[in-house]
Design a protein around this nucleic acid. Structure first.
Lengths: 204, 204
DNA sequence: GTCTATATCCCGATAGAC
DNA sequence: GTCTATCGGGATATAGAC
């Protein structure tokens, strides 16, 4: 049995390690996460993880994949209920911030750790559905009224920016602060959509 | 003499260490920065820094102070030339992104490393002038037409967001990419200012 | 103020047994 | 697939000499 009351039910060391990694990232941040400590948590030898992950980055990439999957699963039903593309984009931004506030370790793994997607194509695949929803909204909104690239950059920045401010503030896990930040991201997105022609580069 | 051609001119080990820290952060990021490596660069014993800095965080805080001073010095003349508060805010956002793109190690030390300002009041003092300029713009713009807190959050998010996207993209040091991002931040800020009443929380 | 030396601890990764 | 053992490395920080 494992050192910490049966977390590792043989045959699923891989999953147990991912779970332990998430806990560790939650407690000490991506920076301080280590294979050795994750092994200790799960109750296996420090060498055991190497049967499932090539190296530390590979485990981190697996956490990122898990994060994208969770985010997408939580997001889709919520966003699909919204018909207007501007409102859908705002809902997307709000969900992004909410994910940061309520699932910080997963958010960090997926959106701040900066996994090398060239070396870990699984991560790229995992983020594809999210990417598609986003791009569709942008295209629909830009259509004739704005440059899609400029609108996309602004909306991404506003969502990511609100999420980072929330986390830097130390308000991860604070429901009120999270909700406030999510609503701010939503309204800021709507303001950008409303003024989207202002985002275009001036013609030469 | 130092290992790397006279960087350390005795009597200024403190400054030499800060400079070395900036280089190290530029090359490997804040994460991988270490006191030991900085000492080696400067050509002193690994114990020498402890005569000037209490610990690793203290050195990082000194780098952050240096960064705020540089940023403020570069910023002020540029921003002071702009009269309209909306344009001034846009110039501020653009300068923030430009600083990220051209001085990444300093930007990281000041705005992403997350130095504990409670334990390092010097950092708080160093950022005060910047804070003042920002708050003045916000107040002037909000005056009657919007909630200042909501506008401030949105503008901060948009500036920080564009800066982070630029860095995550791997475009630090790329002049073109930096300029594009700075202009985007500027235009997005103007769009937010124009639609600032949309940012207010709905009255109950 | 700086050096030498050292204590103490941690990590990633591998080899080879079971 | 997991373990034991280990190699080789790096870090922070302190003590005591100069």
């Amino acid at each position: 049995m494992s050192a910490r009351s049966g977390r590792y039910h043989h045959g699923d060391l891989r999953a147990a390690l991912i779970e332990a990694a998430v806990e560790l990232i939650a407690e000490r941040g991506v920076r301080e996460f280590s294979m050795a400590e994750a092994s200790r948590r799960v109750g296996v030898a420090v060498s055991a993880p190497y049967a499932h992950f090539a190296d530390r980055d590979d485990l981190l990439a697996a956490v990122a994949v898990h994060a994208y999957e969770r985010f997408t699963a939580e997001l889709m039903p919520e966003v699909d209920r919204v018909a207007d593309p501007g409102e859908r984009l705002a809902a997307l931004a709000a969900a992004y911030v909410r994910f940061a506030g309520t699932q910080r370790p997963l958010f960090d793994a997926a959106f701040v750790a900066g996994v090398d997607k060239a070396e870990h194509p699984e991560v790229k695949a995992a983020e594809a559905p999210l990417e598609r929803v986003f791009v569709d909204c942008i295209r629909e909104l830009a259509n004739g009224a704005a440059d899609p690239d400029e609108l996309a950059a602004a909306v991404e920045a506003v969502a990511h920016g609100h999420a980072m401010l929330l986390l830097d503030e130390g308000s991860a896990g604070d429901r009120e602060a999270t909700e406030r930040a999510a609503e701010r991201a939503s309204r800021a997105t709507l303001a950008l959509v409303a003024g989207r022609r202002l985002l275009d580069r001036p013609a030469r």
